[in-house]
Design a binder for these strands. Structure first.
Lengths: 218, 218
DNA sequence: TAGATTGTTAATCGATTAACAATC
DNA sequence: TAGATTGTTAATCGATTAACAATC
């Protein structure tokens, strides 16, 4: 897993999906798989799978295919799931709590070490193994524990100011659930925007589009 | 808004973002905007914005630009946000509850009319204006109310069976939060997959990649 | 009218697919 | 060895960007 250097984002975004399908295969006891068979299951082309994997090295063997367990492990290493970077979550409302409770951050390369909110009725609440802390203490916390990444589950109105504060405190990656779109403003900062409403609106378009076609066809 | 027909998914996925930025502009009282200025704010090219919009019609005026309010409204119509289609949510765990509580479905083209779960300790729980119903009653409910779309927030193990059941009951669109990847298996069914763990893993890759570069540079 | 900015066509770029020699 | 399947190069396709005439 050495060949990389400027691998395109389209390829990177497919890696977690490969990882997931390979985990499924392991669960069902499959030990080897060809790019052709994997492409059939994932709805891709075999060519694309081979191209994608060869950005990082030759994990397969001619005439045999890929070893499922090995490939799963290699992709995990490429994604960086083997080490845990410290992360904090800011905004312990419904979405924030759901994420803190539902995600095993340690399986995804992170260690969730702090949860913050400004609402006195939420501060002190136990969420999994962590207790919600007062957001006023974020500065001190960051200076001590140096989180690399922040999950931003605050309302839109608080997002901009909080993002800037965290960037100054050394946070360089954001998993952003707020409606605030800050990828443009701070170059160099890594942002993975999760605009759930954008996703739902896209589905809305597709559903409308389908019913229009059905109407025309009848 | 008549020109469409096979507009690419890449374009569609940008529409909700335009919609959001235009809403922001309205909020700050801006009444007109050029593709150039909008491109600067959104981090796109002006060319792309004009190309995107012209898939659906000429909303601008030479020498003037676009009327913010009109463009916002037109994009809303293109996305289909003006009518509400009935939707249900299946799986009222942490994520399901957070979504039901946080999203104003009516603003995104849907009307959330039912929430279901199988867990007796959750059934009957009040979530916003709805009460969680027993999933055993989904068949009867669908035959009566004909939801077009289902939000799938069930665990992976329950997802496949539930998806098939709902497809048979006439549900044709899914907002899928489960780890189950069913876009491949049921052609014709519209699926918007929200694989949050894929998103977090992508961020993991980016953060690792950045620190490797920093290490090299020093 | 002059300046600005669109709508649209043409050029470029990047990503996907196809093909095939290498090789297990 | 023969068959299968990779790694990789070349061809195709689609999406983005640039250019510019039309026009408000």
């Amino acid at each position: 897993m050495l060949k990389r250097e400027n691998v395109s984002l389209s390829v990177i975004r497919r890696l977690p999906r490969y990882h997931r399908f390979l985990a499924d295969l392991m669960r069902t006891g499959t030990t080897r798989i060809s790019s052709k068979e994997l492409s059939r299951r994932m709805g891709l082309t075999a060519s694309q799978i081979r191209q994608d994997l060869n950005c990082f090295g030759g994990f397969g063997q001619q005439g045999y295919g890929y070893n499922v367990e090995q490939l799963h492990r290699e992709i995990g290493l490429i994604l960086g799931l083997d080490k845990q970077y410290p992360a904090i979550l800011v905004g312990a409302g419904n979405i924030g709590r759901a994420i803190a409770l539902n995600f095993d951050f340690s399986q995804m390369g992170f260690d969730l070490i702090g949860i913050f909110d400004i609402d006195p009725s939420i501060i002190g609440m136990q969420i999994g193994s962590l207790k919600v802390e007062d957001a006023a203490g974020i500065d001190a916390f960051c200076r001590e524990h140096h989180p690399r990444v922040a999950v931003l589950t605050v309302p839109r109105s608080a997002a901009e100011q909080m993002a800037e504060q965290l960037i100054h405190l050394g946070v360089s990656g954001f998993w952003n659930f707020s409606h605030y779109d800050f990828s443009v403003k701070y170059p160099g900062v890594l942002v993975e925007n999760v605009h759930l409403s954008d996703s739902l609106m896209t589905l809305c378009y597709m559903v409308r589009d389908l019913s229009e076609k059905e109407t025309r066809d009848n």
